[in-house]
Computed example of a mutant assay.
Amino acid sequence: MHDFLKSLGILTDLEIEELSTYSHPRTLEKNEFLIREDSICQEVAFIKKGIMRSFYTDENGEEITYCITFSKNFMTAYSSLITGNPTPENIQAITQTELRIIRNGDIQKLTDKSANWLKLQKFFAEQEYLELEKRIFAFQKENARQRYIDLMQEHPKYIQQIPLQYLASYLGISQRHLSRIRKDLAF
């Protein structure tokens, strides 16, 4: 987490170290939840190692995976964190996952001490917006095959660790369609 935050160039070394005193480790086993729908999110997680997914359950009881987050990234139920309202999403570990957890109240304490924390929050909010826009454009402009190729290029070492049903749901296609795409792309 220290190296990741340092690479952003927003916080001082002292501020990053101070964050370390507020964060604590947590390990999630495969399929364990960070948060479940209808809970209020009160923490942010940095994924040191592992893969997590965000999903909701539709009216037919089907789980729809809409976000997959990999190592060296922050993860939270963002809308619940900022509004204090219950979240409609579930966040679940796809693999055994090592996290650093920071409580929202501690983030507020840090924000009161330095404007750099506000800059960091603004940076993350902007990154979330850009990722959302990228995903929307991908669904509107690209076919499923191209979305899969893009994901393989961005995260080649992780793709094989994601169960087929989650990957297919994330790409907005059936497992059968994903299997055909994989078969077509196999050399």
Results as ranks from 00 to 15, higher is better:
residue 3 D to T: 05
residue 5 L to M: 04
residue 7 S to H: 06
residue 8 L to C: 09
residue 9 G to D: 03
residue 14 L to Q: 04
residue 18 E to M: 15
residue 21 T to S: 10
residue 25 P to M: 07
residue 27 T to Q: 05
residue 28 L to N: 11
residue 28 L to H: 06
residue 32 E to N: 11
residue 35 I to C: 09
residue 36 R to M: 11
residue 37 E to F: 07
residue 44 V to C: 08
residue 46 F to G: 02
residue 48 K to A: 05
residue 51 I to R: 04
residue 53 R to W: 11
residue 53 R to K: 15
residue 53 R to H: 12
residue 55 F to E: 13
residue 60 N to M: 11
residue 62 E to R: 13
residue 62 E to M: 09
residue 67 C to L: 13
residue 68 I to P: 01
residue 68 I to K: 03
residue 71 S to V: 11
residue 72 K to M: 07
residue 72 K to L: 01
residue 73 N to C: 08
residue 73 N to R: 00
residue 74 F to G: 07
residue 75 M to E: 15
residue 76 T to E: 14
residue 77 A to R: 01
residue 79 S to H: 04
residue 80 S to M: 06
residue 81 L to Q: 05
residue 82 I to D: 06
residue 84 G to H: 02
residue 85 N to T: 04
residue 88 P to W: 03
residue 89 E to L: 01
residue 89 E to Y: 08
residue 91 I to Q: 00
residue 95 T to S: 12
residue 97 T to R: 07
residue 97 T to N: 07
residue 98 E to D: 10
residue 102 I to N: 08
residue 102 I to T: 06
residue 103 R to M: 06
residue 105 G to V: 12
residue 108 Q to A: 03
residue 109 K to A: 02
residue 109 K to F: 01
residue 117 W to D: 00
residue 120 L to S: 00
residue 121 Q to N: 14
residue 122 K to C: 04
residue 122 K to M: 10
residue 124 F to R: 00
residue 127 Q to C: 09
residue 128 E to N: 11
residue 129 Y to K: 13
residue 131 E to V: 12
residue 132 L to T: 14
residue 132 L to S: 07
residue 133 E to W: 12
residue 135 R to E: 15
residue 136 I to Q: 11
residue 143 N to A: 13
residue 148 Y to E: 02
residue 152 M to A: 00
residue 153 Q to H: 12
residue 154 E to I: 03
residue 157 K to D: 15
residue 157 K to Q: 14
residue 158 Y to R: 12
residue 162 I to L: 05
residue 168 A to C: 06
residue 172 G to R: 00
residue 173 I to G: 01
residue 174 S to F: 04
residue 176 R to W: 15
residue 180 R to S: 13
residue 183 K to Y: 10
residue 183 K to L: 06
residue 184 D to L: 13
residue 185 L to N: 04
residue 187 F to S: 03
